[in-house]
Design a protein around this nucleic acid. Structure first.
Lengths: 218, 218
DNA sequence: CGCGGTATTGGTCGCATGGCCAATTGGTTA
DNA sequence: TAACCAATTGGCCATGCGACCAATACCGCG
């Protein structure tokens, strides 16, 4: 029981501590919402005093903004992994849409809904949200362009096609806090169907590929 | 100056006072957000004491929920006026989409974004949001069915078509708090283009009609 | 090993919120 | 005109928030 009292305070390198705080805040944002990121809450999770969080983030708003950026970046990387970049665009896009359809991505939809609303009141967050939107848009546009180059996709407006897909994805995500699914089959596969249409693919081209390849590679 | 002191307190009929409170809260919600609805804030606007608001709404959450319902209902009635019900469905739908495109409907998009996010934390609000969604969905579905009956629209799934349009509308609305428009022409007319497509109309069918008829009738 | 810098603590302050309650007063009714 | 009762007031409380700051103690460096 009385092994060694040990230090009452655990002193960490600033960079390490800051990253730790950010990671914790990002997790809270994803699981419970950006409003739940408070100095006291983050401090409790890390077993430190609230003042310490304030020391690393003198303006609490910045903690919220950076936490969102962190969470959004990680989640996007999971949706469009860099280690898939040698795969055919059709497969990458199919996986992207399949992962979005997965119930586990509900948290991500909630987070975006959260951030987009909260950015109404917090200027700093609004800039971050806009930036993250731009990155996602750019990544999807690049994916579309790859597909056009390889002849898999057909469109003369890669950005327009990407925007179209994203509007549908965000539109479906708007219901992420609702009770259940809308229940109508039209909504379930709408993002995939939209992608197939605006990219000149035959219906189902992004559906079979997704599941089949995913199962095969795992 | 010393006309008549008059009563210090203005005593109103409960129904009247309650409606007045609700109307004020709804306006605040639309202009500044649901979070700005506080007992003190509403009381200030009406020139009464905060306790009075608490008297009519013992649980402040209910004030927020009912204010949203009020605002959403009024706005929907403005988008799909009852006094247009004798007009051809194509025209009604064209006007609906045109009004949504109008910058003044940005507040409405913001409100829905607001409510959908906030409903994550407030059970009561979530039910109201779901209900309002159902009403809108029903109204648009009925409009689509009218068009199918009259032969103007072509679809074998009126609800599916309505849902499709609403997903796009909500998707575009997700950016209502962003800095400016996305700037890409694809996004601007996306809702109208989607409606034309899922209802078997020729491109532009909902565009020309909207402006032309609107100008002609005014 | 001891020293110094700074990461960390512990506490306080001001502000805003919702909820609650006894006292008051306005308008209606007898 | 007088009495009644409910609409309205005024004030208080507990809670949770961010910001701030002097004191402390950990840990790396000399």
């Amino acid at each position: 029981m009385t092994s060694r009292p040990g230090p009452q305070r655990i002193r960490k390198l600033p960079d390490e501590r800051r990253a730790e705080i950010l990671r914790t805040a990002a997790r809270i944002a994803l699981e419970e919402g950006l409003e739940r990121i408070t100095l006291r809450r983050v401090a409790d999770e890390l077993g430190v005093r609230p003042g310490l969080i304030g020391h690393y983030f003198p303006a609490a708003d910045n903690l919220v903004s950076e936490a969102f950026a962190d969470a959004a970046t990680r989640e996007r990387d999971a949706l469009l992994p860099a280690d898939e970049e040698d795969r055919p665009p059709t497969e990458r896009l199919a996986r992207f849409l399949a992962r979005l359809d997965d119930p586990s991505s509900r948290d991500l939809s909630r987070l975006w809904l959260n951030a987009r609303h909260l950015s109404r009141f917090r200027e700093g967050l609004r800039e971050v949200v806009d930036g993250q939107e731009a990155v996602t848009r750019g990544a999807l546009t690049a994916l579309v362009e790859d597909g056009v180059k390889s002849g898999e996709f057909t469109t003369d407006d890669a950005l327009g096609a990407a925007l179209h897909i994203l509007v549908v994805v965000d539109g479906i995500g708007a219901y992420a806090n609702g009770y259940t699914d809308v229940g109508h089959p039209a909504v379930d596969g709408m993002a995939t169907a939209t992608a197939e249409r605006v990219l000149g693919l035959h219906p189902g081209a992004l559906r079979g590929t997704a599941t089949a390849t995913a199962t095969a590679t795992d």
